[in-house]
């Protein structure tokens, strides 16, 4: 049920959550608009620029809506959304890997990419190199690299989102960066 009350777009997350829980759909729309770029960055870095990425993004927002009543505010809303996006991306990658193992008996991921006409060739090549190199990382390393280096979360925040000890995040980051650098050296 939607309450007709108009919510200002500059409302705090807490106010938006309260309004959403009171049945105000407009408030939830503001949350979606506020965090869609963050979700996109996370999902695209995790699964690549593929059509399914939008489905994962939509599912992230639906799951957020369904679990909003359990949000206690211990972490920020952005962290909470990012955790959902990462978990759904990892689920997708696991399912995809299982499908490939089933059909081809081969666990390597295939990068399906959509060219972006807004980039020039050099930028496009660089983006492709980064994206392709990211896709070569194992999902657990990719998640750490995405959050820590692309999204710019701190090590502690990354650990909180992935629900891992800080030490594990640091070791995965070091190994992930090392592998990423090897890949990038071949491509750039």
């Amino acid at each position: 049920m939607d309450t007709a009350e108009i919510v200002p777009a500059d409302c705090s997350d807490t106010e938006l959550i309260r309004a959403t829980l009171a049945g105000n759909q407009q408030a939830f729309r503001i949350i979606v608009e506020r965090y869609e770029d963050s979700v996109a960055a996370t999902v695209f870095s995790m699964v690549g620029n593929i059509p399914e990425a939008e489905d994962i993004g939509q599912e992230t927002m639906i799951r957020l809506y369904q679990s909003l009543h359990t949000f206690k505010g211990e972490a920020s809303l952005k962290t909470w959304i990012c955790r959902i996006a990462i978990n759904l991306s990892l689920d997708y990658l696991r399912r995809k890997k299982r499908r490939w193992l089933w059909f081809l008996d081969n666990g390597t991921e295939v990068l399906e990419s959509i060219p972006n006409p807004s980039c020039n060739n050099r930028q496009w090549e660089q983006r492709e190199a980064i994206q392709t190199s990211l896709m070569q990382l194992k999902p657990e390393f990719r998640a750490v690299v995405t959050l820590r280096l692309i999204q710019g979360y701190s090590t502690e925040e990354t650990a909180e989102i992935l629900q891992l000890p800080v030490g594990t995040v640091l070791s995965r980051l070091t190994r992930g960066k090392s592998k990423l650098l090897e890949q990038l050296k071949e491509r750039i």
Partner: peptide, 8 residues
């Protein structure tokens, strides 16, 4: 950090 992020 400069990696241009895709959008929906």
């Amino acid at each position: 950090s400069q990696h241009k992020k895709d959008r929906f």
